[in-house]
Design a protein around this nucleic acid. Structure first.
Lengths: 348, 348
DNA sequence: TTAAATTCTGCAAGCGCTTGCCTATTCTTA
DNA sequence: TAAGAATAGGCAAGCGCTTGCAGAATTTAA
């Protein structure tokens, strides 16, 4: 006993008007009188009519759905940005389809195909670690689906909007903070350089050293692939260097946590023996002991902006104008906590 | 210069066959010879054809898309379950649309409407706190869209599959653990009883006391609405009771964190002065100091099972059979850590 | 060699909606 | 009161795909 889904024909019949009238009334077309519109909506409600978005989308070429591709949704940064995207999308009348790339190039391509088949109106993405060529995104753009990058952006793609934080100056700021705290031999643990953001963070770190006339020591600079094992390996390696650092800047949450834990496991006191500064939005940073000094990105703003910019492009697009794609760089905050502060500040 | 999207007509023309042949070949219809099928697929690939899921869905009444409604995606438990759902969905060829109810009844209703308009093939949901009546889900079920509940389930709805943990025995287990550790006066901070799971947890807590011949003291039993402020209020209230507890069972992550922090802020030593056991999947439980003893739910399994069961129902449905809806109850783990262990166990 | 069975492909209807164009009705204005 | 201008609503095509039915081509049996 499958209940027949009711469609505009049913409500047209019930009111003895044409389906055009129903369709127009439901879409608030001004051609239809206020009176008729009201009646139609009332009847639609009464019959439990629910517009078939597929049929509607087929005609209009708009689905009011956008796609989001992130490496993994259950990481704090992405959970927060995705939440913000969904909230903003909802306000603007859009639904969102979530895909995870798991940092795999192949999966990311598959995600794009899925989203394109679903005829999403636009795509928001933070790149997979593995991704180097951006052909799949070009395909989307060619098909007239705007793409907005955030966080891990595809700088090579001109026809896209990018939302990012100032990674260079964030790292510079964090490093300078360590220098001001009196640390003399500052190491760095980062991510793969093929992702722009990690290159910039490394650059900011180095520039801060240069600006303070401190030497750059490659033996205390580590790169990781951001996996648990490799972060652990890097922490171990850097702390057992022939001339180990008295402070370490870590380029993401996982590296900082691993560094702190490894340091504690070999009985180094933080921040006395070694200070740690990370990049993290995880509330854990505040709660762990020692609490973690960290660069905090504006997740909420990033997600919101990404969604807003995307919709701007979707709407603009309709008018076939040439759109000026922007690159928006947001500021970060450095939350100073115990992991970089203890032995130097009196008030701790 | 908008590139025309190519459709099956284009590939039909390129091959000088009919669109039926193309459609069938693309869908691996056995009526089409292997040779033709190969040629069609090849040409489709070459032309960059991408099936229009809208048109296809219009005909077949299947979208290969499911909807997920959770209170908030950026809470650890939901981030993990949603991740698991998306992973499983991807493997099974489904896309997922994410909606957040923000624990609001109205928003949850709006979410259902959106998902029904999008003609999702099924819905997975964990109920909003506010939700009491389940009309909106009945609407979906009437429209032949299967609904699977997880975590916060709608027990009143017979025609649905439910995936949950054994909340009663989890709370019982946690409380018994505290009793075994030697605590004599155990309090409880929970969530709204209108959500079944919190009623069950309270029940398990009480039963454990009864089973050990301990009195139930309502003055150290608190209910919260799970907001930060109210969790704080409850923690404060319980710790300032005329006869304050020497141990507290907290029914979710936020309540436990607040309880620990408030206790520490008034200089209670944990677990000596007061022990705390929570419900949490947050990695923070392990990293905070004191680390938190907590009931851990199998997020990954829950998400995976929910998706699998949903697809079973979607497929079954097609054959118009009567489906036996199951209620699956999973086990939890009690991770014993410092917050309940310190002063009683020698090995800590 | 011919009829029947089998295999492959095409025709055309239709999924539920939107929308350009046209007609009928009502309102202005002189 | 007549005629042009609004205004409201209907007709029908078509979005890109699937699929029941029928027909053509090929194979098999007699």
């Amino acid at each position: 006993m499958i209940k027949k889904k009711i469609n505009i024909y049913d409500v047209a019949k019930a009111l003895d008007v044409s389906i055009s009238t129903v369709s127009r009334a439901l879409n608030n077309n001004p051609k239809i009188s206020a009176d008729t519109t009201r009646k139609v909506k009332q009847m639609a409600e009464k019959l439990g009519f629910q517009k078939n978005a597929l049929a509607s989308g087929l005609m209009t070429n708009k689905t009011k759905t956008i796609g989001v591709i992130v490496p993994q949704i259950n990481r704090e940064f992405f959970a927060q940005t995705v939440r913000s995207i969904e909230d903003t999308a909802f306000e603007m009348g859009y639904s969102v389809m979530i895909c995870q790339s798991h940092d795999s190039y192949l999966k990311e391509q598959a995600n794009i195909n899925t989203l394109m088949s679903s005829r999403v109106d636009g795509i928001i993405v933070s790149l997979a670690l593995e991704t180097t060529d951006l052909k799949h995104f070009e395909k989307a753009i060619d098909a007239d689906i705007p793409v907005v990058f955030f966080d891990r952006v595809g700088l090579e793609l001109p026809n896209t909007t990018k939302i990012m934080v100032d990674n260079f100056s964030s790292a510079h700021k964090a490093t300078s903070h360590l220098i001001q705290q009196g640390y003399k031999h500052i190491g760095y643990i980062g991510g793969p350089l093929m992702r722009q953001i990690f290159e910039e963070r490394l650059g900011g770190y180095k520039q801060a050293l240069i600006d303070h006339n401190m030497p750059i020591d490659d033996s205390i600079i580590e790169k990781t692939d951001l996996t648990q094992q490799d972060c652990y390996r890097a922490a171990k390696s850097i702390l057992h260097a022939s001339n180990p650092p008295d402070a370490i800047l870590c380029a993401n949450h996982l590296t900082s946590v691993n560094t702190i834990f490894y340091a504690m496991s070999i009985n180094r006191i933080i921040p006395n023996d070694v200070a740690v500064v990370g990049f993290s939005e995880n509330p854990i940073a505040e709660l762990m002991i020692p609490s973690l000094t960290a660069v905090r990105q504006p997740c909420y703003e990033m997600g919101k902006l990404a969604m807003q910019k995307l919709v701007e492009e979707i709407d603009f697009d309709q008018e076939m104008n040439n759109f000026i794609h922007s690159t928006i760089v947001l500021d970060t905050k450095l939350d100073v906590r115990a992991s970089s502060n203890g032995s130097f500040a009196a008030n701790n």
